[in-house]
Design a protein around this nucleic acid. Structure first.
Length: 259
DNA sequence: ATGGCCTGATCTTCAGGA
């Protein structure tokens, strides 16, 4: 089976490209982030016509995650259990479900904005809540993975110019330690192949010709447990989807599994 | 070829993205 994760930066704006990509890629299960819509606005009908069931956690213009599947979608859990509140509410940043043989989470980790910002402390609390929430499944006997926009570059190799990010979010030791804590629960970083150049970046800012210059970051990650990673046959970043008019600023990360 | 921000709402200006 083929699964993928993709921060679409508005599913409404991306719908034509999303439908075309689902068909051309033959993806069975897709984890979506930044849907930027209400649950009512989510294109459930268009996706059903394309053969996919949807599970959606979305509340409006910011954030929003979903799982869509054509191989089954059951036992949906909305949100992050014991997840921290930002300002007044739990934001829609997590959803999990069982899709055929695998249990999957789609997550959109808070950005953090700046290290001194309250959003950064919230980001670290959020990642700790994620660790606790996935620990049992991560150590369990069934294929399990957390996929999404983690908003953390795991190493300096995952940033085109680490010097430029000195003192910035996405690269701090505390954020990287939060990822390490996830791995210590039994999850591994499934490293995708780049389709061009030497690093498998997944995000390139819209500004300053970052994509043509390949000034990117690898922040969209697949963290799988051992039963999951042993089934991985291939993984790659579909940078073709970052090209042209109407692209998201993130490319899909695809994982092929012998499951 | 991959091209100089994009998105949705508070809507002609802004927050948020990272």
């Amino acid at each position: 089976m083929r699964i993928a994760t993709w921060n679409v930066n508005s599913i409404t704006a991306r719908l034509p490209r999303l439908l075309a990509w689902l068909e051309s890629s033959g993806t069975d299960v897709l984890c979506l982030q930044e849907t930027k819509c209400t649950a009512e606005q989510f294109p459930t009908d268009a996706l059903r016509e394309a053969g996919y069931e949807s599970a959606v956690n979305a509340t409006g213009r910011w954030n929003g995650v979903a799982l869509i599947s054509r191989v089954g979608l059951s036992d949906v859990v909305m949100g992050l259990p014991e997840g921290p509140v930002y300002e007044t509410a739990q934001e829609p940043r997590a959803i999990s479900a069982t899709c055929g043989p695998v249990r999957l989470w789609s997550v959109y980790v808070p950005n953090g904005r700046e290290v001194a910002h309250e959003h950064y402390a919230y980001k670290l609390r959020w990642l700790e809540a994620l660790r606790k929430a996935v620990a049992a499944d991560a150590a369990g006997p069934n294929p399990f993975a957390v996929l999404g926009d983690f908003n953390v570059a795991p190493t300096d190799e995952d940033v085109w110019d680490p010097a430029l990010f000195e003192g910035a979010t996405h690269v701090t030791p505390a954020e990287r330690e939060a990822l390490a804590a996830l791995r210590e629960e039994g999850l591994s970083d499934v490293m995708p192949r780049p389709l061009k150049y030497d690093r498998p970046y997944t995000f390139w800012d819209y500004r300053e010709l970052r994509f043509p210059k390949n000034k990117g970051m690898r922040i969209d990650l697949v963290y799988g447990n051992a039963p999951f990673t042993t089934a991985v046959r291939d993984s790659y970043v579909d940078r073709e989807e970052r090209k042209g008019k109407g692209a998201s600023d993130h490319a899909p990360v695809v994982v092929d599994l012998d499951l």
